[in-house]
Structures are given as C-alpha cells and as structure tokens.
Write a protein that binds this DNA or RNA. Structure first.
Lengths: 136, 136, 136, 136
DNA sequence: GTGGTCTAGACCACA
DNA sequence: GTGGTCTAGACCACG
C-alpha cells in the first residue's frame, strides 16, 4: 500500500507519514484499524525498522494513531489535540504555501479559487453520499 | 514571491529551486528577467545566504538560469515550459495535500473553505491596491 | 547540570526531558536561551547523541524548545500548543496519580491538601517576589 | 487503589511494585493482609495478567509478600517501614513534579489549585459515602 | 560545527 | 511476536 521514492528529497519517514495521513483522511483506514507492524512494513519497504518507528511516532504525536506496546499500532479516534490558535496557524501556513505555488505556476487568484472550490465541492458530495449509504 | 516551510521536510535550498523552476516553467518569469541578488533574497526569507547561493548554483547547473559575474543572475534562454495539464496536475496535488491536512486537524470542509477564501480575498485586495499605487 | 541515573528504571531520554522541564518551569533557563548541543551533552553524560536528540525532539513536540537546524537548540516562548481538553486531561491524569500515591503512603486527603497548598503558596510568593525584583 | 500511567516511562510492572511497596511501607496495608488475585487486579487495571504476575514475583523476591499456592498472596512479616520524613519526601517530590507539568502546560498556580482541590473534594465525598454505606 | 536522517543490530518490556 | 530504548557510526543539510 505504501510506496517510497528514494529520490523524492523528503525524508523516508515523512513520506510514510504523508501516505498514512492520506489513508486516514480518505477513510481508507479507520478508527481502531491496525497498522502493519513496524518490522513488517520495514521489510516490505526495504528500510530500517527504526525509520518506520519514527514515522509512527510522528503520527502518534499528531494524535492520528496510538500504540499499545507489545500489542500493535492502531488508528486513533478523531479528537482535537491542538489548541485552536495552533490549528489555525498550521493550516494558514499551508494555505500560504499553496497560494504562492499557484502564483509561481502563473495561476490567477480567481483560477485558484475556482479549482480549489470545485475540488472541495466534489469531496463534500462524496462524503454526504457515503453517510447516506451508511444509514442504509 | 518565494515561501519557505521549515516543517516541509525538503531542504530549504530545494524549496527555492522548485519554486523558481515553477516560475520559469509557467512563464511567471521570463528569459533574461533578473532574479533577486543572493543577499537580498536571503534577507527576505530570513535564511543563510549560503543556502540561497546553493539553490542558484543548482539552477545554473540545470541550465535554467545564468549569472553574469558582478552583474546579477538571469533566467536562461533554454526553458522548459509546463503544459496546462502539467500546471493543473501540480496545483491539484497541493490542494489535495492541504485538504488532507485540514481534515486531520479536524477542520470541516466549510471551515477550510472559509479560511481559504478569506485569505485569498485579502491578498487580492492587497494586490489591486499595489497596482493602483503603481499607476500613481 | 543534568544527571543520569542508569538504575532509575525510566528511560535515559525521559530523565533528560524531565530535568529540562524543571529548568524551564523554574526559570533556570529562559526564552531563547541555548541548550547544550546534542553532541556536547551526549559526551558529558557519556551516552549516545541519538538519545539526547530524542529527548530534545520530545521537548520540541511539547512546544517547550525549538531547534534551528544547523544553528542550535533553544528554549521556546511560552505558548498554548494543546487544546484545553487535552491540557486538562493530561493534568488530571497526573493529579489522579498523585492522590493514589498519597493514599498508598497513608496520607489522608486532608494531609495531602495541606502539604500541596502549602507548597503552592510558597512558590506563589517566590514568583511574585521575582516579578517585583524585575520591575526594579 | 493502584493507578497505571502508560506515559510514565517506567514499565507497568514496576509501577505496580512501587505502589504496593509504598502501601506496605507506610502501613496502608499490613502483615497477612491479602493482595487482590492476579487476574482480578489485571482486569481492574486493564493490563495483561502476566504483567501483574511479574510484579508479584518481584515483590516476593524482595521478601515483601508471600504466596500460599492455591490460596492467595499476602503481605509478609518482614516489613520495612518508612519514617514520616521519608513519606513526606516522596510525596513532596511528586507534588513538585505535578507543579512543573502544570506550569509547562501554561496553567496558572490558581488554576492548578482549583482543579486539584475540586478533584480532592470529589474523592472525599465518595469515600465518606462509601463508609456510610458500609455502616448500613 | 550544528542538527537531521538513516542503518545495523542488541536488549528489554509486554501480550 | 510487538513496540521501545539504546548504541555505534555514516552521511547530509545548513549556518
């Protein structure tokens, strides 16, 4: 499920973090699902177990997973770990980066707004559909 | 218009390389346009001049810019232009990443849209004001 | 300044974390003060640099210090990183532990309250004195 | 009345050992008092019975408890009693640690006092109620 | 010279 | 068998 690109430039452990974040956000893995054991994932990706452990630690810090030592690693329940100021700070940083990149790529602000809001609407529809299905 | 994210994981000099590359490849800056001097950019971004110098060296090595010793640094002739599909693909990837981050921070899609559009509007106003001032 | 007890039972890196937390809380080290470099502290304590790095990473997680790669590690400005729910959860856990330990040690709740409030009052007086001195 | 803190850093079995030791050394439990069966305590603390068993083994090795096979586990004769100074020293160390934690989480001393005393009052009421019921 | 990443490999606590 | 800690030691990014 997870793929490492050694030439990516970003550290391996962050590549793992990013991909697991995607899986959690998209609902591909859910609360209390078990993640692959450190050693197993390390063997699959042909990297050192410590590197996987580091990725898991980072995710645990962000409140997305939890580990029960001796048992395994699991997807955590959604909860608000950081203060509102902190959450806002983090997301505004990312927004800032996105806008700058868009301008570097010669998009106007209007174009960016359009692409962004379209994507958001699409996801919104998907999620309301899923909720509808769950109710069935 | 370059933005550094210290938590990105990618080295600062590569963040600069990427962003300038995008500006060139998307036509945001053009042949023989002058890049900001190393020291000026370093001061703007609050980073070490060596780091900026390294980015410029890398870009020169890739043939995207050239330096005229004692004069300045300029965008080179040989340019690779992104297709519109390429530009769209890149920006959509970034948007995707922003949305994932927001969801894992427990922002709703509505909250994200609100924060994003507010920021965009603010920048839009700033830029139209600046243009107004330029005309004076 | 920092002392390691190999027979303590608690991991070395947590012993470091705890002691630095004390230094920060007591004002022994303050905002923007530099911590000893990883390698230096490791050599002093005769432990592996990675272990010190792990302690520093943990403190950075908790928002108590920040690192500028290539430069050094510094005491961070006080700020509220975690949500109120999270902060309350953490401190209530500790209070719970304290109360249980007190009962195990055959203190009555009244005795515990007395000892605790006396200690708190003492610190409170100290801190108001210090503020007074700073104003001079 | 044992409490496990998974984030403490010290192994669970040692947390149990320490707390039972305190109960014995402070007279909270006495010679020939029965300890809870391994399985019962494990269920209460939501941990593995092996972990409790290991703690009991360690306490037996230290001569603080003895087991009568098929019957139960009891507090041994040979007891080391803490002096009042010792008890006070231990609990003050814990209080110190709680205050440091609270300050680093940006609680004021007043807030800490309030949370602490509220919790204490609540437990006090519970315990007097229980005694009332016992009398019935 | 500073911190960051990664590997290889050992040992421990715990289920 | 699972995660956690620690060591030794290499290489890189950055100031």
């Amino acid at each position: 499920m997870i793929k490492i690109d050694p030439n990516d430039g970003t550290p391996i452990y962050l590549q793992i973090v990013r991909q697991i974040k995607y899986m959690i956000a998209s609902g591909a893995i859910r609360e209390d699902d078990e993640l692959p054991p450190v050693r197993v994932l390390a063997q699959q990706l042909v990297i050192n177990p410590n590197t996987v452990a580091k990725a898991y630690r980072e995710l645990e810090f962000q409140g997305l997973i939890y580990t029960r030592p001796g048992a395994g690693t699991y997807v955590a329940k959604r909860r608000i770990l950081f203060s509102d100021e902190e959450r806002l700070r983090i997301i505004q940083e990312k927004i800032e980066s996105l806008i700058v990149e868009a301008q570097n790529l010669n998009f106007t602000l209007e174009e960016l707004a359009k692409i962004f809001n379209e994507r958001l609407t699409k996801i919104y529809k998907q999620q309301t559909e899923e909720k509808g299905n769950e109710r069935d």
